[in-house]
Structures are given as C-alpha cells and as structure tokens.
Simulated scan of single mutants.
Amino acid sequence: MSVMTVTGYKPMEINIFKHDDERISIIKAAIEKRLIGFIEEGLEWVLISGKMGVELWAGEVVLELRDRYGLKLAVIPPFENQEERWPEPIQQVYQEMTAAADFFRPLYKGGYNGPYQYQASNKWLIDKSDGCLFLLDEEFPGSNRYFYDEAKQAAGDYPIYLITPADLEDMVEEIRMMDPDYWD
C-alpha cells in the first residue's frame, strides 16, 4: 500500500473543545504508531481532506514523519476556504498545513455549494488511495459514517484499518509505561 487516506472524528464529536487538549497527543501517538507500521510496508503518501480534528492531527503527524521517513502529505479539501468558519487557532493550523503539504488542491473551485461536495470528496479519496486508516468507534460513528459506509462499499478489496477506543486506551498505557517514574 503506497497511498493511504486518514480520517476520523471532528474534535467536537469526541468532546475535544480546546486545541491544546492533552487527549490530542494520545490520538496523534496512535496515528503515528500505525503510520510507521505502514511506512515499513511501503507507504509513501497520506491523503486527507483537511477537516478539523483527526485529519489535521494526522497531517501534523505526517509532517513530523516526513523528514525521518520521506512520507508525503496531500491535502485535498472538498472545496476552497473550507476553514473560513472554524475557530481562529484551527484556521491557522490548517493554513500552515496546506502551505507545508507536498500537494494541495481543493476538489471543487469556489466555496461550499452542497453536501454533494463531501460525497464526491469521500469517493475521490477512496478512489485515489489503496486503503484508509480511520479513528472510529463503530457504535458511535458520528459524521464518519458517511466515509465509512462509502469505504465499505468500495469496489474491490479496499482495506479499512481502525484505531478504536481500545487502541487509544492501549496507547495511554504505552505512554504511561515509557515514563521512567512509572516504574518507581
């Protein structure tokens, strides 16, 4: 697998309302761990639409891994200026990310015109990738359900890899065990 889409929840869907919430570092650590495994198997590109939340956090992880592993980031938003109604700190992160990405191009010219843009974006990301990594609790899919349903219906053998709440709990424990004070 050389190209992977990464997606997941918007921050408010998982009760994260501050851009410096400590849970973000756990989510990013879980994404990094999974991406490194895929890099070792040949992953070269990560695609995101740049939605706030998991996608922006994944983009930050990819940019951190770029120097060590040569991983590349493509940000393909469904339309131009998708960030214009977001909180200012998140807009800034998005703008910095799109400037630093290896590839950036909105799928549609102009602003939001309707839900079809999100549907087309989901289809495009699935068509252009070899699989996806998804932060998802299948009992509470939130707005993720649209991408997830589309990925499950994708023609052929489209692999879907999940980071589940149990995986995040394991990551918390892993981080805790890396702390030298944990063993005292």
Rank of each mutant, 00 (worst) to 15 (best):
V3L: 07
T5E: 07
T5M: 10
K10F: 09
I14F: 13
I16H: 09
H19K: 10
D21P: 10
R23P: 02
L35S: 08
I36G: 09
E40S: 13
G42Y: 11
W45E: 03
V46I: 15
I48D: 03
G50Y: 08
M52G: 09
G53A: 02
V54E: 04
V61T: 09
V61D: 11
V62N: 04
E64Y: 01
E64P: 01
L65W: 05
L65A: 04
R68L: 14
Y69G: 07
Y69W: 14
L71H: 03
K72S: 11
A74C: 06
F79T: 00
E80H: 02
N81W: 06
E83H: 14
R85E: 14
W86G: 03
P87N: 06
E88R: 13
P89K: 03
V93C: 03
V93R: 14
Y94S: 06
Q95F: 07
Q95C: 07
A99R: 15
A101R: 10
R105I: 02
R105L: 12
Y108R: 13
Y108W: 12
K109F: 09
Y112G: 02
N122Q: 08
K123A: 15
W124S: 09
K128Y: 12
S129N: 05
C132E: 07
E138H: 02
E139P: 00
P141H: 01
G142V: 03
R145E: 14
Y146G: 13
Y146C: 03
A151H: 08
Q153F: 08
D157M: 05
Y158F: 15
Y158P: 04
P159H: 02
P159S: 02
P165S: 03
A166N: 08
D167Y: 04
L168R: 10
R176L: 11
R176Q: 09
M178P: 00
M178G: 10
D179V: 06
D181W: 11
W183A: 13
